[in-house]
Amino acid sequence: MKNILQTKAAFSALAAAVALACAGHASAAAPLSPIGMPGYARIMVGDVEVTPLSDGTADLPMVDLLKNDKQKTLAALTKAHVGSPATTSTNAFLINTGSKLILVDAGSGTLFGPTLGKLVDNLKASGYAPEQVDDILITHFHPDHIGGLVANGKLAFPNAVVHADKRDADYWLNADIKAKAPKDFIGFFQGAEVSVQPYIAAGKFKPFEHNGEVVPGIKSVSTYGHTAGHTTYILESKGKKLVILGDLIHVAAVQFDNPGVTIGFDSDPAQAASARAAMFKTIAKEDDLVAAAHLQFPGVGYIRANGKSWTWTPANYTSRP
């Protein structure tokens, strides 16, 4: 009996020690990780590699910016667990054709606040270097799409040729238009000057004036309205397509259900809404993969017709490129 009691006492002591150790372990706080969120993804379009790159996110007052009933906008944002202000992604897309490395849009650089401007860091994290980029296709000249072209006054992509619709260049680089612009938009003109002029001076800016192939395998489609020369780009390989929308849409929670809703950044709201409707109709009919600058990162998925509205389905994730 004595041995049994001693054994029970030993087990009790051991159990108490284990419980104490576990309690101590459970209460030991792990420090927050200093490693940032991953800012790139990888997909294949035919035999072309596409790397969505995050420039970061910004909290924007979409209730005020969207041209819509404010209560309806807030309700849609709340239902989608976005809230107000709405945390909004800024995405760019790096395309490796095997012979060329092409970047669609260049992020914000220092022009849009401290939570953006992360594109170059994420490009490097994805396995590439800015010096490797051969061509940059700009959807439009707003600062969150061109600010990353320069860094400390120098070309951030020293070997790249920049392409954009001439209508956008003629608008945003025009001193007379700038002089007549509302005060709130002066910064947009200044951003265009500091971002694009260095490439013009270096002979590395090549505007285009019509729809067609800009670089091998990628063509431009005019989708004017958001800006004078807003452009959509279409990558095609092995019968597969990726339609890169730029700013044809900003807020998934609102504008897919109500595609007529425009945003305060649109230079011609009616034309912007019309361009969106026409492009979405084509995309849905052809079942193309799409990528957008301000849908939640990585901003890649499919658009389906749903009566007079649209349904957004994010692309299925795979760990294999």
Rank of each mutant, 00 (worst) to 15 (best):
A284S: 15
Y128R: 15
A92I: 07
D268T: 00
F205E: 08
A129D: 15
K308V: 11
V133Y: 03
Q271V: 10
H140T: 10
V221K: 09
K154W: 07
L53W: 01
V243H: 11
K241F: 02
A291F: 03
V104N: 06
K166I: 04
K281S: 08
D105R: 05
T97S: 08
A92R: 07
Y233W: 00
V18F: 11
T73S: 12
G229W: 07
R276Y: 03
S267N: 01
L155D: 03
E213G: 06
T262S: 12
K79Y: 06
A75P: 01
A106F: 09
G113D: 09
Y171D: 10
L137H: 04
A19I: 11
K206P: 08
G36K: 15
Q190Y: 03
L116K: 07
V261F: 01
F11H: 07
V18P: 03
Q197D: 01
S12D: 07
V221E: 02
N152Q: 14
Q132I: 11
T7M: 11
T282Q: 13
D144E: 05
N174S: 08
Q132L: 11
F93D: 04
I263E: 15
I200N: 04
K8Q: 13
G264A: 13
P314K: 13
G260A: 13
D121A: 12
K180G: 14
A9V: 10
N306I: 07
A28C: 04
K72Y: 12
V214I: 15
G113P: 05
P216W: 07
H25E: 13
L242A: 11
A181Y: 05
D176I: 06
T313L: 14
A252C: 01
H210W: 12
L116W: 00
P158K: 13
V215S: 14
K238R: 12
G56V: 07
I102T: 02
G203P: 05
H145D: 02
K166F: 01
D59F: 13
A30F: 12
N122W: 00
N96D: 14
T73I: 02
A284W: 04
A151Y: 14
I186T: 10
H210N: 10
L149C: 01
K8N: 12
E213I: 03
L20K: 14
S222W: 00
H142D: 15
S12A: 14
M1V: 14
P314S: 04
Y302G: 00
H294V: 03
T7I: 12
L295V: 05
S33F: 01
P85S: 09
T231M: 05
A164S: 04
A17M: 05
K204P: 02
V48N: 04
F141D: 05
V290M: 09
V290H: 08
V215F: 09
